[in-house]
């Protein structure tokens, strides 16, 4: 979808590759901001063994593309990429990457912050935490 600028995938992603895809949009890019979300080992007072993410295929990709389009309309950015992993994710592995690029850094910072919040709000993706005591679907977005 959209030259691979929005992706949901099972496997690990390359930050460098995503940055290059974004950079390819224009030589006018002067600042790039990345948000990288990764799997931490402790949550809600419990030790986490691993995470599992599920998505609504089709709708989740559509929402990520909507976020990208709205970010380009509402912020002064040149391009944006979003990658989210699903399936089993081990502690320490990366979960989500947002790359925003603009002529000057401030626009990229603002768009990146907005995009991760919006992703959490409107994208049908769910996280399950697997602990030693059992598994629990997480249904709030801190």
């Amino acid at each position: 979808m959209t030259d691979g600028l929005v992706r949901i995938q099972k496997g690990v992603f390359s930050i460098e590759e995503a940055v290059e895809r974004v950079k390819g949009a224009s030589k006018g890019i002067g600042g790039i901001v990345c948000f990288l979300g990764s799997a931490r080992d402790f949550s809600r007072g419990k030790e986490i063994v691993r995470l599992e993410f599920e998505h609504y295929p089709g709708m989740a990709e559509k929402k990520l593309e909507e976020i990208r389009q709205r970010a380009k309309e509402n912020f002064n950015i040149i391009e944006m990429a979003i990658v989210h992993r699903v399936g089993r994710i081990e502690i320490g592995e990366d979960i989500v990457l947002i790359v925003t690029a603009s002529a000057h850094r401030n626009d990229a910072f603002m768009a990146c912050e907005w995009a991760i919040s919006e992703l959490k709000r409107i994208t049908p993706i769910w996280k399950k935490e697997i602990t030693r005591e059992g598994e629990v679907w997480i249904s709030e977005t801190p």
């Binding site: 993410f53 409107i122 994208t123 993706i125 249904s139 709030e140 977005t141």
Partner: peptide
């Protein structure tokens, strides 16, 4: 039918 999202 979807519970609250928790991606990211």
């Amino acid at each position: 039918f979807m519970p609250p999202f928790s991606g990211g």
